[in-house]
Amino acid sequence: MFEARLNASNVLKKVLDAIKDLLNEATFDCSDSGIQLQAMDNSHVSLVSLSLRSDGFDKYRCDRNLSMGMNLANMAKIMKCANNDDTLTMKAQDNADTVTFMFESQNQEKVSDYEMKLMNLDQEHLGIPETDYACVVRMPAMEFARICRDLSQFGESVVISCTKEGVKFSASGDAGSANIKLAQTSTIDKEDESVIIEMQEPVTLTFACRYLNSFTKATPLCNQVQLSMSADVPL
């Protein structure tokens, strides 16, 4: 028996929004410690690695390890039917071929349930290797999303140059060029708003806007984003 409850459906909506443009389908591996998802995106150039720890749920029970292959577009259709503040319960029996999503309104007067067929997906064992990165930048997630969006207008790729003093984002194309420099925050009064750089050696790397913009779909999940960079290694 698997059962996971969140007091606000909004949390899972945000998680789903963060991955549904990158993945058509994915396996949610449920165990006692929580739910793990790891999958290459549809074009096989980036890895989505997601961990929902059991203690992040308001109620969590998983008697036996369970792999639930889900079509994320169908899951999104179901999640769209929930109000943000509805309580969400995901349920599946052991060896089941369906998962149930139940939404309860705050006043308990509306209860809806949706059943979705599970899929058998090829499982690959993937992961982000432990790496000592040349530069690690922590910055406001909203600011990063804004920069990616703004620079996408000027080119298909963004160059990120990081030194001890700051980080520079650049793009260029037919319309011209654009540069955005962020200095490291001098005093950390508000941690959420700070730009912090840990640098072993400076790096200059180029990334496709398309992917950066996909990654920033996760922005509502956290106030800060961490960019870990080394030469010849994925961001």
């Binding site: 074009s43 096989h44 150039v45 690959e124 982000i128 994925p234």
Partner: peptide
């Protein structure tokens, strides 16, 4: 695509 293969290998040999 060579880059694509390189990236896949990177994540597989974790």
């Amino acid at each position: 695509d060579v880059d694509q293969l390189k990236i896949e290998q990177y994540y597989k040999f974790n």
